[in-house]
Amino acid sequence: MVTIDLTTPPPPPTSFIDAMARRLALTLPELRRVAELAGGAPLPFDLPSGTDGAVDAGSLSGRLGQSRGSVEDSAYTDALRTLHDPDETLRRRGLVTDAGADPGVVGAVGLLATPRLALDIDVAAGATQVKAWHRHSGGAVASLSTCDGIVFELAWFPVDQWTTELARVTAPPEDLPLGTSHVPAHLDVPYALADSVGEALRSGRSDLVPVLVDQSGGVVLADGREIGGAEAVDVVSAVHTEGRGRMRILAAEVSERATTSVGVVSWVLLRDGWHSLTPRHDDVARVAVVRVDPDDLATELAPVLAQVTVPEDLA
């Protein structure tokens, strides 16, 4: 079975360069061009329809006219058209020469297309949303991330550095200061109660929350202590009202020998920082909401990766 230890500190690097991830900013046209030079390697996301990134006139947006979405698509297309020719910019930056594209860049794009393990990461915090794709095979990892779909960060690094790179994904924005939360460090609540309270609050029916708590078929635990009444109302409500962001990671083994199995890691950003959301089932379906730090992501992810990988002797 493939084992990826994301919790043990990596061995000392043999050089300063070995301890660093290689990072490169590429515009979407440059990224497409590099993918072409890497043998037509597919990118890990769906590109806009049309060779120039324009919205297809036969698409739903094209048929319905200037909706909000189509206006945003138009602004996105206009932004892409202002970018310089990718061959020119890549040559000026020394990433493409007469001998071809930079081997490191080509290798990273190739790894994105042919991984053993894949992580699709979606993070929203405040007004910022970032999508990232981490791909692993052998002893290497390549990642691609963007917050606007125009400029991408391409990075590649040894698997020993994956823990550090994962922690970067969950770092809250500097303009989003943290404070104090009404949610305890470890909250354990029936899933049906958490879900129904969220629906009531979204519908503007906060008056129903005490009723839902009183009629719940399971106990609410705060740091191991059973709570009820007004305290339970405040705590369960805070999970929804304090929400300032969320993160979801889909993990899968994508090699040809594997039957696709997907694992999920979900976090929510509350007033005091990140809390993990972990479902489980006792007498009823429950969810644990646990305070975590960005450095804890690797620890949370390790068992999920172990679940989605296939033992070699069963391939």
Rank of each mutant, 00 (worst) to 15 (best):
residue 222 A to H: 04
residue 269 L to I: 09
residue 265 V to K: 05
residue 270 L to P: 04
residue 256 E to G: 03
residue 301 L to R: 10
residue 224 G to D: 03
residue 226 E to C: 00
residue 266 S to K: 07
residue 228 G to A: 14
residue 233 V to C: 02
residue 281 H to L: 15
residue 253 E to R: 10
residue 222 A to K: 05
residue 251 A to K: 07
residue 295 D to T: 13
residue 278 T to P: 08
residue 274 W to P: 06
residue 219 V to W: 00
residue 264 V to S: 08
residue 220 V to P: 05
residue 251 A to L: 10
residue 287 V to G: 02
residue 236 V to I: 14
residue 278 T to W: 08
residue 243 G to P: 00
residue 271 R to K: 09
residue 227 I to P: 02
residue 219 V to K: 02
residue 267 W to Y: 07
residue 262 V to D: 01
residue 300 E to Q: 10
residue 244 R to P: 04
residue 218 G to F: 10
residue 299 T to Y: 01
residue 273 G to N: 14
residue 219 V to M: 01
residue 257 R to M: 01
residue 226 E to G: 00
residue 221 L to D: 03
residue 298 A to E: 13
residue 228 G to T: 09
residue 242 E to F: 11
residue 225 R to W: 01
residue 226 E to N: 01
residue 259 T to E: 13
residue 270 L to Q: 05
residue 240 H to A: 14
residue 227 I to V: 12
residue 280 R to L: 09
residue 257 R to F: 01
residue 223 D to S: 00
residue 222 A to Q: 06
residue 302 A to D: 11
residue 251 A to R: 05
residue 257 R to T: 02
residue 276 S to A: 15
residue 252 A to P: 02
residue 231 E to A: 10
residue 230 A to H: 08
residue 237 S to E: 03
residue 264 V to D: 04
residue 271 R to E: 14
residue 248 R to K: 05
residue 263 G to H: 00
residue 246 R to F: 12
residue 241 T to Q: 13
residue 224 G to L: 03
residue 264 V to G: 04
residue 256 E to D: 12
residue 268 V to G: 05
residue 219 V to G: 00
residue 258 A to R: 12
residue 247 M to R: 13
residue 285 A to K: 08
residue 235 V to E: 04
residue 253 E to K: 07
residue 275 H to A: 08
residue 273 G to V: 14
residue 264 V to I: 12
residue 226 E to K: 00
residue 287 V to W: 02
residue 219 V to D: 03
residue 268 V to F: 03
residue 244 R to Q: 15
residue 291 R to M: 03
residue 236 V to N: 11
residue 225 R to L: 02
residue 241 T to N: 11
residue 277 L to K: 08
residue 287 V to I: 15
residue 259 T to G: 08
residue 241 T to A: 09
residue 300 E to Y: 03
residue 298 A to S: 15
residue 265 V to P: 06
residue 254 V to M: 08
residue 284 V to H: 10
residue 230 A to R: 11
residue 231 E to F: 01
residue 225 R to Q: 06
residue 235 V to R: 08
residue 297 L to P: 14
residue 230 A to D: 13
residue 276 S to R: 13
residue 264 V to K: 11
residue 270 L to V: 04
residue 300 E to F: 03
residue 260 T to S: 12
residue 227 I to Y: 00
residue 287 V to P: 04
residue 288 A to R: 14
residue 251 A to E: 07
residue 243 G to A: 15
residue 290 V to G: 01
residue 239 V to T: 12
residue 247 M to I: 08
residue 274 W to V: 05
residue 288 A to D: 15
residue 278 T to N: 10
residue 259 T to Y: 05
residue 221 L to Q: 07
residue 283 D to C: 04
residue 296 D to F: 07
residue 273 G to H: 14
residue 286 R to A: 08
residue 246 R to S: 13
residue 302 A to M: 14
residue 256 E to I: 00
residue 234 D to A: 12
residue 285 A to M: 11
residue 229 G to L: 03
residue 255 S to R: 10
residue 239 V to G: 04
residue 239 V to D: 03
residue 263 G to A: 01
residue 282 D to M: 02
residue 281 H to R: 15
residue 263 G to N: 00
residue 229 G to E: 06
residue 289 V to D: 04
residue 255 S to E: 13
residue 248 R to L: 06
residue 261 S to I: 08
residue 266 S to M: 04
